[in-house]
Computed example of a mutant assay.
Amino acid sequence: MRTTRSRRRLGSPEDRATYETLHTASLAGRALRRGLDEESAERALKHLRALLGSPAVVLTDTERVLATDGTRVRAEHAWDLARRVIEHGATGAFRTPTARHPHAIVAPLTVEDAVVGAVVVFADDTSAGLARATDEVARWVSAQLELAELDRSRTALMEAELRALRAQISPHFVYNSLGAIASFVRTDPERARELLLEFADFTRYSFRRHGEFTTLADELRSIERYLVLEKARFGDRLQVTVQVAPEVLSVTLPFLSIQPLVENAVRHGLERKAAAGQVVVLARDSGTEAVITIEDDGVGEDPDRIRRALSGAVRESVGLGNVDARMRAVYGDAYGIVVETERGAGTKVTVRIPKYAPGTER
């Protein structure tokens, strides 16, 4: 008795060719997303040559040859061709009788309408197809370089916003915390020592210089230190509840994205309230997302003022617009913070964070 096994179908030749082309492009894209330099050009070039099927390909910036791949070509000859195209900003075809390959097609690389380099493709003969392919590859490389530039801009913006946020929160909190600690130095030295250690750990976290992202667990630990210091100042006037689902502790999120919201609840919600107040911090698991809410029963706020704070027109609500802008920059507009408030009715801020998002590694 014989059994037969059906061979696994890998698709038509056209399907396989499409897959290989896309896979090759993705390999080149990974290198180019870091920008255009010698290392990225070296890593990307062999994949670009595979896409073009040419014997030799060269990548340049606006000053020099960055990398070559394929049969040996003279860098100075390739640069002379690239320089001409960089000056005029248009794809050109050239005869190269003194080179190993008698033809070359050169296409400019552009970022935001500025020429940043060129791709030089050497061939034994030219065709309209190779010219179109070179032009399309140059456009695709340019798109990857524009994405790299956007990534750099986003990173620079986030760093600037983080510096602004630190500048906003630090003076107010530092002065009040040190005042609270000083009040215990004579009456309860051990309590003062504990608070001073909490203050040191809090500031060490808040002013750390590495990484745009942190875990929810680390952010919540810093929030707990902050609330311990505020309770030392407010005494029984401040009641705190923190409830966290263990499943979301490892979720990665932008550094200092929850802590300012808690400080906002204490500073603007409860500080102006005559009676005792409560802050509740909840973090729960919600399928593919972690949902964090910060709620206080303080004095509340005019909803229109909150809208202006989120737009950046009002600066008094510590970090509100800053955090909203950073969340949208990282996760998209669907993940801006949601604020529910009314005069005399307290405030509730909700933040949704995808459990897994590309580019948010610590």
Rank of each mutant, 00 (worst) to 15 (best):
T3H: 10
T4P: 03
R5E: 07
S6R: 14
G11E: 01
P13Q: 03
T18M: 12
E20I: 11
A31F: 09
A31D: 07
E38S: 09
K46R: 15
L48S: 05
R49G: 15
P55E: 01
R64H: 10
A75L: 15
E76P: 07
W79F: 15
D80K: 13
I86Q: 08
T96R: 03
H103L: 06
A107H: 02
L109D: 02
V115R: 03
F122Q: 08
D125I: 12
R139A: 02
L145V: 04
D151V: 15
R154T: 14
E161S: 10
L165D: 04
S177Y: 14
I181W: 09
V185Y: 05
D188M: 08
R193Y: 05
R193G: 03
L197V: 13
R204I: 08
G211T: 08
L220S: 08
A232E: 09
A232W: 00
D236Q: 11
T252I: 04
P260D: 00
L261P: 04
E263H: 06
R267V: 11
G269V: 10
L270Q: 08
A274M: 11
A274H: 12
G277T: 06
A283P: 04
G298K: 01
P303S: 04
R305L: 11
R305Y: 01
I306P: 09
G312Q: 05
A313K: 13
A313L: 13
R315V: 08
G319F: 11
V323G: 04
A325T: 09
V330F: 06
Y335Q: 04
R343S: 12
T350N: 10
T350H: 02
K355N: 02
